[in-house]
């Protein structure tokens, strides 16, 4: 029997958690700084960790090109929903831990020098669930893309509709899809990027309807929870069920793209798909923000002479 020598190495489970992260797929301990450098992809097995919205935006957009819109949107509690915790408390806790106001961020930016509207979801905010705020942001981003006739990029990371807002969350499926459908009819491209996870009501609305659907490798993408499908429906679930490659094989994803290639893919796609704008764009750039005002002044110009005539008449 060999003699057990005392180990002078630190035991693995004493890795300080702010320096090291364990890969959930291969159990490898990854040094955080190197993990960040590798875009939060495990260097050992290629597992894609989830990204926060700000990191995702940095990864995809040209440096310093992002201008956030509607940062002040915040959910209400329309149902007075209380489960084990009150809904407003859950929102407040998520805001404190993420620094976000809700599970999506949208704004204007550029990819490879071309203007885009981008909306990014963040799974760390209540599972990226879609309530009124997320729905509103997606709809506004689609409307902005339509106004400017620039491509819309939506990066999904969501467990689905937010239960705490009840059917109002469900109605966000209609709200978002109605807006993206108008894009489609107007020939403005929608690029849907699905990251881990994209499930339930988010997959069953705008995420599935991209003109181009991209997915990160091995992301969970599906409608019903795999647990349910396995538990209540007889029969074995196929290998890799509801993963990116499964969707690719069944024709619902155009391309499965490694995170390190994602920006380059988007640059190429945007360049190939963006509507060719006749060069009035210099003049178009700033208008949408002032539209309400210019609309009012146009109205005023029209109304004042008429009322003057009416007085005279």
């Amino acid at each position: 029997m060999p003699i057990k020598l005392p180990s002078f190495r630190q035991r693995r489970d004493t890795y300080p958690s702010d320096l090291w992260t364990q890969c959930p797929a291969c159990q490898e301990m990854l040094f955080n700084k190197q993990l960040e450098k590798a875009l939060r992809v495990c260097s050992n097995c290629g597992h894609h960790f989830r990204l926060s919205a700000p990191v995702r935006l940095n990864l995809l957009l040209d440096p310093d090109s992002f201008v956030e819109q509607d940062p002040g949107l915040q959910s209400l509690d329309p149902l007075g929903f209380v489960d084990l915790k009150a809904y407003p408390d859950r929102v407040a806790a998520a805001q404190a831990t993420t620094g976000l106001r809700d599970a999506a961020v949208w704004g204007l930016g550029s990819i490879g020098g071309r203007q885009v509207v981008i909306c990014v979801m963040d799974f760390s905010f209540m599972g990226g669930s879609m309530g009124s705020v997320v729905g509103e942001k997606v709809a506004r981003s689609a409307e902005a893309a339509l106004d400017r006739r620039v491509p819309l990029v939506i990066v999904s990371a969501s467990g689905g509709a937010r239960m705490q807002e009840g059917t109002l969350s469900l109605m966000q499926l209609v709200k978002t899809v109605a807006a993206t459908e108008r894009l489609r009819l107007a020939g403005v491209p929608l690029i849907s990027v699905m990251s881990d996870p994209t499930t339930g009501g988010v997959f069953a609305s705008f995420a599935a309807l991209g003109d181009v659907n991209l997915a990160e490798p091995n992301a969970l993408i599906g409608f019903a929870g795999a647990r349910v499908s396995a538990g209540t429906i007889q029969g074995e679930l196929p290998e890799g069920f509801q993963r990116s490659e499964f969707l690719f094989n069944h024709g619902f994803v155009d391309r499965v793209v490694h995170r390190s290639d994602l920006r380059d893919e988007l640059i190429r796609l945007v360049a190939l798909m963006a509507p060719e704008v006749p060069d009035a764009s210099a003049d178009n750039g700033n208008i949408p923000a002032f539209r309400p005002l210019s609309f009012l002044s146009a109205l005023a110009e029209r109304v004042i002479p008429e009322s003057g005539e009416a007085d005279r008449g």
């Binding site: 209609v174 993206t180 459908e181 108008r182 009819l185 609305s205 409608f223 429906i233 069944h250």
Partner: peptide, 24 residues
Amino acid sequence: HPGADSEERGIAEAIARSIALMTR
């Protein structure tokens, strides 16, 4: 239907597209 065959044939896509159609 939440089964594997339903997912294989794109239940989410079908629902999304039907919603989209009805909005217009």
